[in-house]
Design a protein around this nucleic acid. Structure first.
Lengths: 329, 329
DNA sequence: TTGTACGCGTTATCAG
DNA sequence: CTGATAACGCGTACAA
């Protein structure tokens, strides 16, 4: 491995000067161009690459942020979250051991009981959690405005003329469930839309995401069996909606001709589904960008020993109209 | 930050002893249990966490492997690969700077022209590439047996009684395209199945994956327009198959009642599609596991200064029969 | 069985 | 403008 000293020797200067030049440190202003050239040439010639371990050891900076994602698609992950809360702690520990300067946690689904706060807060590492509402002043949070989103969904169907609408709500234990339902209820009040108890189903508490599809399927079957006439279904999320669509297809009910379906999230599959799924989009890219920006601010605050309190933002969702909803004719 | 010296002070021993004990080094065998206990207690009490930078600097090991994934779902990534080959090099450089001890590259889609070999080979870091056939003895490779997979697909349709079969082949520039077609041709020869030129389409060269869906849609429309009667379609991959299904649906052709469709890959969407998609599965978990195992061997070889040459494995695909294919009645 | 001393590669400090 | 020196935290010959 070629070290800074090798470059020093090759260029004929001291390692100090080399360091200053190659890092473009403030002092580099006083170093003549010719010296710089020679050092840079030597470095390039030897293929010098600074040792990040030594650098981090010395500077106490890792230039690294941690990102924790629980991809519930992965059956292994469900285990992670199901089984032991200690796993989360272990992974967090690993990241902290690597001296991450910031942390982004993407909490899709079931961060119900896991009390991240406890472990995370004391780490004093700036952190942003996406998908879970918080009110700490230690950890920032970014969520979609669930209430507004649900409101937009039902409003869309209402505008299309639908009045007999069925609902598949989320599992009670899930934080997103209640605000979404609140959005529906509010709309119902202001618009006069009637909500028929017998056309409201609840997803079971299972934390498995695929179960969301299966449950959507089964609950829709049940809905059909009840023979209450409905012309549209609001599904808790896209996976549920896909289950719903399949159940309808199986029963010979065409979407959207005979029944409209709307989801929530706008997962990648929505656009390629047959029919493509109308849904309420979570602006994930925006949230990601915001998370980064918040994190960078937080990290800078730490570096400059400033105080900076956590931010909590509720992002506006976006209605994405595709093929699965249609005006009542 | 609490250092090993703090633990030494707290426990009353030297930092050497502490290091030996906490790392369970060979010499730890000679250290009395009582000493160990006291050191461990002190470490725990102070919440000691070894500084990985110092450790890596000293031991010259990072205990880290790099994983490069090009998720073509992400529009940003298409840029990465499209634009400049230099990006790949830059990312590789970043990983090498972090002293990864091994490297896994997941090459979904379009690793056509990018000549990883050049950059990667000289890095002398054990590497495994998934999804691209290689024959170097520097870099291991893991791919699915495309020829066999295509053979299984067509055989499945044939067994169901289909004889008039349409094909959407991959882009010519893509490495997977030709072996898959070879599998089809072979089956055609041995079985006597006729391949009708007019029912064979090719995906355009575009590298964008969503275009695979769109192209599948358009080519299927074209296929329908030609009015050659077919009872089944073999799509190049699942995305293409989804496009095909939508086009058929649009044309009022029911899948699988009036036309069977089969894909390739078994992406997550297959199971939740309506109808769910019969496809040829790439055993990605297995490939992942194998990659890790190969990598670990390679890393160990390096540590022990052994020679070890690259492995090249072609994994057997698996036919996953779902709803989109049906026996001709 | 335990401790001293050194080196890993960088960079900050300070002297010249 | 440049260079010597120390220190970051850890692990390990070597000595005791």
């Amino acid at each position: 491995m070629v070290t800074i000293r090798d470059v020093a020797r090759e260029s004929g200067f001291s390692s100090t000067t080399v360091s200053i030049v190659l890092n473009n440190a403030p002092l580099a202003r006083y170093i003549p161009a010719i010296t710089k050239k020679r050092i840079e040439r030597a470095a390039k010639k030897l293929g010098y690459r600074p040792n990040l371990f030594a650098r981090s050891l010395r500077s106490k900076r890792s230039h690294t942020v941690g990102v924790m994602v629980f991809d519930m698609t992965d059956p292994f992950c469900t285990l992670v979250v199901h089984n032991e809360r200690s796993r989360f702690e272990r992974y967090l520990e690993m990241l902290l051991d690597r001296r991450v300067e910031g942390l982004i946690v993407v909490a899709n689904w079931l961060f119900l009981d896991i009390n991240l706060l406890a472990d995370l807060e004391k780490s004093s590492v700036p952190a942003v959690i996406i998908g879970r509402e918080l009110d700490t002043d230690q950890i920032s949070s970014l969520i979609v405005d669930n209430e507004l989103g649900a409101h937009m969904a039902i409003e869309h169907l209402y505008a299309l003329g639908h009045r007999k609408i069925a609902f598949i709500r989320g599992p009670k234990a899930l934080v997103d469930t209640s605000p979404r339902w609140k959005g529906i209820r509010n709309f119902s009040k202001t618009s006069g839309l009637e909500l028929d108890e017998r056309m409201i189903m609840d997803l079971p508490e299972s934390r498995d995401p695929i179960s969301s599809f299966d449950a959507g399927y089964k609950l829709t079957e049940e809905l059909i069996k009840r023979r209450r006439p409905f012309t549209a279904i609001v599904a808790f999320d896209d996976m549920t909606a896909f289950g719903t669509i399949r159940a309808l297809a199986k029963a010979g009910i065409r979407v959207p001709d005979q029944c409209s379906v709307i989801g929530f999230d706008d997962v990648a599959t929505c656009g390629i589904y047959t029919p493509s799924l109308t849904t309420v989009r979570q602006p994930l890219e925006t949230m990601g960008a915001q998370a980064v920006s918040i994190l960078v601010d937080g990290i800078n605050a730490v570096l400059e020993k400033r105080e900076s309190s956590a931010l909590h933002r509720k992002m506006a969702p976006e209605l994405v109209v595709r093929e699965s909803t249609r005006a009542l004719s």
